[in-house]
Amino acid sequence: MNFHLPTYKEPDFNQEPFLSAPDAQTVKVTIEGVAPEHYHGLSIYPEYFKIQGQWILARESRMDGVPVLKSDGTIQVVEFRNLKVGDQVIVGRSEDGRQGIYVYARGFSSHEASADLFAFRSGRSRETAYSKDYNDLYDLLNYEKDHGYIVWVLGPAVVFDYDSRLALSALIANGYVHAILAGNAMATHDLEAALFGTALGQNTYNQQSPPNAHYHHLDLINKAREAGSLDQLIEKESIHDGVVYSAIKNKVPLVLAGSIRDDGPLPPVIANVYQAQDEMRKHTRKATTLICLATQLHTIAAGNMTPAYTQKNGEIRPVYIYCVDIAEFAVNKLKDRGSLSVTTLVTNVQDFVVHLRNNLVSS
């Protein structure tokens, strides 16, 4: 294995403007759930705050949160809805250190000589060469399997194909998946495939649509609701393959966030969006690698709450984010929302998952 974590290079705070910068200013919350004016909005990058003359790194971050100074001198990242009266919110919109706030985006930069200013195909598109990205990802996942926390964000397309569904199940069984974030559709069609051999009524292998197969996903949801849980459904219907089955068998957390589009939904789907966000956040805050497959809204949601860094064993390390979709527009949406540390691959997610299985799991 050729993978090595890059070394994090801390800013040199023994120089200007850091030395003469004032302490970061705070203002108390007076209305629950409402930040004071001029609050500082966090990014996905490491952010330092000058507290009593010392530059303190927020232990974690997420977009659309605010930094709250705790009584022990630590910085806590808090969503607006979770702000309490009396919380000391750090205020200031300057990010270059002058107001005691410094956003640091180059901690893992190699500082190698820059390439030519002009170059063909510098963006990421269907014409991009992805061979190195695949090889890098194989090495990364072999490392993360034992040393990290790999979170997968799944759209239903990944279980519409016979081979990709089995491939992802094999990746789960072999330790390459530590948590799954998805919606009602992914789990429904995976279980539909396990019970009926179809996904949204179409056979996952030969693409045939049997008579009345358009009822299958509703029949599956109905059976699951009658069973009361996915565990009991799997036992009652003798289901023995698929993504949901493998996740439950291998005790991989499965967070299913609800949507206004949902049928049913399945018993474990979380209807309250803020509760779903909290459950997703439990895993994105532990994530060291995030892999998002063919689900634009879930990808943006998970990407925005996943920092570009995390701390493990006292050391700061990068969080790797991959966004995979057959549509260029979809993979670029996450970058447009500010998650600049993402690696995008424009390809069929079904082929992507099979490639991973073939190169990571010994037959």
Rank of each mutant, 00 (worst) to 15 (best):
V103M: 14
A105P: 01
G65P: 00
V77T: 09
I101H: 03
A58L: 06
T128Q: 00
Y130K: 02
S61K: 05
R121S: 14
F80S: 11
T128H: 01
S61R: 10
P67S: 07
E37V: 14
E32M: 10
F118D: 03
R106I: 14
R124G: 00
D136Y: 01
G33R: 14
G53I: 12
K132H: 00
A113G: 07
S114H: 06
S109M: 14
P67V: 11
I75F: 11
Q99L: 06
T74L: 06
P46A: 07
K84Q: 09
S122L: 04
Q54D: 13
R81D: 01
F108P: 10
P46F: 03
R59K: 15
D64Y: 08
H40M: 13
V78K: 12
E37F: 11
E47S: 13
S71A: 13
D87N: 04
G53T: 07
Y39Q: 13
F108A: 13
Y102Q: 14
S125F: 02
R121Y: 11
E47H: 09
A113K: 15
E32T: 13
S110R: 15
V85P: 00
V77N: 02
V89F: 04
L69P: 09
V103I: 15
I51R: 09
Y45C: 09
I56P: 11
S122H: 03
Q76W: 00
A35H: 09
S110E: 15
Y134D: 02
G123A: 04
G100E: 06
I101S: 06
I90G: 05
L117D: 07
I101T: 08
D116R: 08
T30E: 05
S109R: 14
V66S: 12
K132V: 02
E60G: 10
Q76F: 02
I51M: 08
K132P: 00
K70C: 10
H38S: 01
T128V: 02
T30L: 08
I101K: 04
I51S: 09
W55Q: 10
G92D: 08
H38T: 06
L69F: 12
K132C: 00
L42N: 11
G92C: 07
D96R: 13
G92V: 10
F108S: 12
A115G: 09
G92A: 05
G65S: 14
E60L: 10
E95I: 07
F118M: 02
Y104G: 10
I31V: 14
V91L: 01
E95D: 02
L57D: 12
V66R: 09
G65W: 08
K84V: 07
V68M: 03
K50W: 05
V91F: 02
T30A: 04
